[in-house]
Each structure stands twice: as structure tokens, then as C-alpha cells.
Amino acid sequence: MQSPGALEISRRDLLAASAATVTVASAHSLGHAQTKATTAPQSTKVTFTVNGEGRELQLDNRTTLLDALREHLHLTGTKKGCDHGQCGACTVLIDGRRVNACLTLAVMHEGDSITTLEGLGQPENLHPMQAAFVKHDGFQCGYCTPGQICSSVAMLEEIKANIPSHVTVDLTAPAEITPAEIRERMSGNICRCGAYSNIVEAITEVAGRKA
């Protein structure tokens, strides 16, 4: 929903080059252009609940939901793996749906209910999915794990709600829980340690218990 009017043209002389030497601006600044500063405030108050607890924050508009959780609320279970929606480590549940917390602004979540890994269970009182990940060794370094677990909990709900996937054979039939479905639906959560085979077993066990 962007309009071309906002695309700015910046100074091309930054790239004036000779054969042996070249002068360019540093990282980022090539894209810079002069824009009229707005006088509107650049921070906003936002109120939402996190793991059932009401929170009110006055935030720099630029603060992502991920950084609001990690740097302002110190809920560091949610991880920053790429900050660009390319890995899934920051997956949280917003009103029950899984999203990448890195690609949404905190101020866009007025009134929302957010669940992070910390809201699912504690070391002494594990959520069934957390327990299954421990049992099946569905992690190694543990950094993608919060995203994997949040994602898998929401993913099973998506199947229950009859949301199809890329590998669903018949779009008009109810979605099923199969290893192929789990793998496709979990593909937005990268695990570089390569625990995928074990993660699928953990999820399958929880799904079976639920069914």
C-alpha cells in the first residue's frame, strides 16, 4: 500500500567514479534523500496484554514488537535471528495467530493480546509442546526454539481451523495432520542446527495426544 509519490530520488553525484578511486557514501546513506521533517510526535503510547498481563508503553514509533518485548519488557524468550522476517525465531502469537514479531511495529498492536514463549509454560510447569521438544531433543543451540514452539502450537490450531497448506492435496477436504503437512507449515522457522527431524516427532506426538 505504498504510493510512488513517496519514492525519493537522491543525489547521483555520490556515485561519481573514476577508474582507480571512487567516492561513495557509507552503508545506508546512498538511499538518503532530504525529506521535510514532520512536527508530529515520533513516539506513541500503546496498551496491550502480554501473557495475560496488561502493559502500557510509550514507544519510539520505530520500535518493533520484537524489540518492545525484548528491550522494554525484558521478555527475551522471543529471539532476534534476522530482524527481517527470514528465520522465524521471533515468532509470537497475537490473538492466537503466529506472526514474526520483527516485522510489525509495537504501536500497531493497541489492544492486542500477545503470547510469547514465556506465556506457554515454565521450567517447572512445561507446556506439552515444550515437554515434547525436550523429550525428542527438538533443538540444539536453542536459539530458534522459542519460535519453533510458538509456531508449532499455533500451527496445530491452524490445521484444526481447516486452514490449508501448500501440500494439502484436496483444498475442499479438511486439513490433516501428517508429517508432510507439519514440515511445510513449519518451514517459516529455520533451525540451522538441523533439529527438524526431531521437531517433527515432537509435534506429531503432541498432535496425537490432542487428537
Partner: peptide
């Protein structure tokens, strides 16, 4: 320099890199 934001999954990605610079 205004822009609409809805899902934000592409716009914020680009704003972080200052490829998009809405005010």
C-alpha cells in the same frame, strides 16, 4: 513522505535498511 502501512511485512523490512524512508 507519508505511506500507508497494513501488514508491514515488506515495508518494515525495507525501512530497516532505509530503502524505504517514510516520514
Amino acid at each position: 513522505g507519508a505511506k500507508f502501512i497494513a501488514g508491514g511485512t515488506n515495508l518494515l523490512d525495507l525501512m530497516k535498511l532505509e530503502i524505504e524512508t517514510p516520514t
